[in-house]
Computed example of a mutant assay.
Amino acid sequence: MVIPPRLVPLVQQFDFARERLTNRMSGPVMDSGDGADTKVGPMTREEFLWEPVGGCWSVRRRTDGPGPRATLLAGTGDWGRDAASYPHPWPPPFTTIAWRLSHLSEMLTLRADHTAGSRSRTRDDYRVSGDVEEAVAAFDTAAGAWREALLSVDDAALDTVGYCTYPHGSDSEEPFIDIAWWVNQELLHHGAEIALLRDLHREASSQPQTAVGR
C-alpha cells in the first residue's frame, strides 16, 4: 500500500525516535545530537530498576505487591507495573526506566492491536518483564507492530474519528492522524526521559557519596 503523503513525515519521525531510543538503550553507539556517534554500553539491570528518589513506581514481582501509593500491578506474568485506579495519586510518583519502558511498550502494542489487529487486547493481556534485555526486546516488537499498523491505513482512515479503538486514551474522539502524532510525542518524550535517567545513573554511580539504590 502507498503511504498517504500526510502520514509520511510522521512515519519518518517515528522511525528516527525509535532508532535513537533503541541505540540509547542498547548501544554500541548513539547519536549524541551533534552528528557525532558516542559509545554507549547496553543498559544494565541496575539502571533499569534504579530508584533515584523515595516512593518510585516501577515494575515488581507480583509476590512483592504494589509499590508506594500504587494499588495494583498492571499487566500479566510474574511481574507487574505499579498502577492505581482513578483518581491517580497526586503529585504523580516518579517512575523508573523499567516503568517508563513498560508503559511505552504496552501503549504501542495495544494501539497497534486496536488499529490493525483484533481490537480487543487490554492491559491485562500485556506481559510485563523485570528483565532488562526482555524489556528492550519487547519495545522493539511493540514499535514494529505499531509501524506495521501505521502502514496499513489509507488516506480516508487518517480523517476517521475513532479509527483506533485503544480504550485508554482519547482515540474514540480523535481522527487517526492525530493519534499517530500523539504516539510520536509519547515515544519522543519517554525516550528523552529514559536517556536522561541513564545519564543521571552514570553520574550518580561515579560519585561515592551518592546512594545509587538498587
Rank of each mutant, 00 (worst) to 15 (best):
M1G: 11
M1E: 12
M1W: 06
P4A: 02
P5Y: 00
L7T: 02
P9D: 09
L10D: 04
D15Q: 14
R18E: 11
R18Y: 04
E19D: 12
R24S: 13
S26W: 09
V29L: 11
V29C: 07
V29R: 13
D31W: 06
G33W: 01
G33E: 01
A36F: 10
D37Q: 13
M43I: 15
T44K: 09
V53I: 14
W57A: 01
S58P: 08
S58W: 00
T63W: 01
D64K: 04
P66I: 05
P68N: 07
L72M: 13
L72R: 15
G75P: 07
G75Y: 10
G75S: 04
T76C: 11
G80E: 04
D82E: 06
D82S: 05
A84E: 00
A84Q: 04
A84R: 05
A84T: 04
S85C: 07
S85W: 12
S85F: 14
H88L: 15
P89H: 00
P93Y: 07
H103C: 10
S105P: 04
E106V: 03
M107L: 12
M107H: 12
L108P: 08
L110N: 05
R111C: 09
D113P: 08
S120F: 08
D124H: 05
D125E: 07
D125H: 09
Y126P: 03
A137Q: 15
T141D: 15
A142M: 06
A142Y: 05
G144N: 06
A145T: 02
A145R: 15
R147S: 11
L150K: 01
A156W: 00
A157K: 06
D159W: 08
T160Y: 01
G162I: 02
T165K: 13
Y166R: 01
S170L: 14
P175K: 10
F176E: 00
D178A: 11
W181Y: 12
V183K: 05
V183L: 14
Q185V: 11
E186T: 05
E186F: 05
H189W: 14
E193T: 09
I194C: 06
A195F: 07
A195V: 13
D199H: 08
D199W: 02
L200M: 13
H201W: 14
R202V: 09
R202E: 15
E203H: 08
E203C: 00
S205M: 08
S206E: 15
Q207G: 00
P208W: 01
T210Q: 10
V212F: 03
R214D: 15
R214H: 12
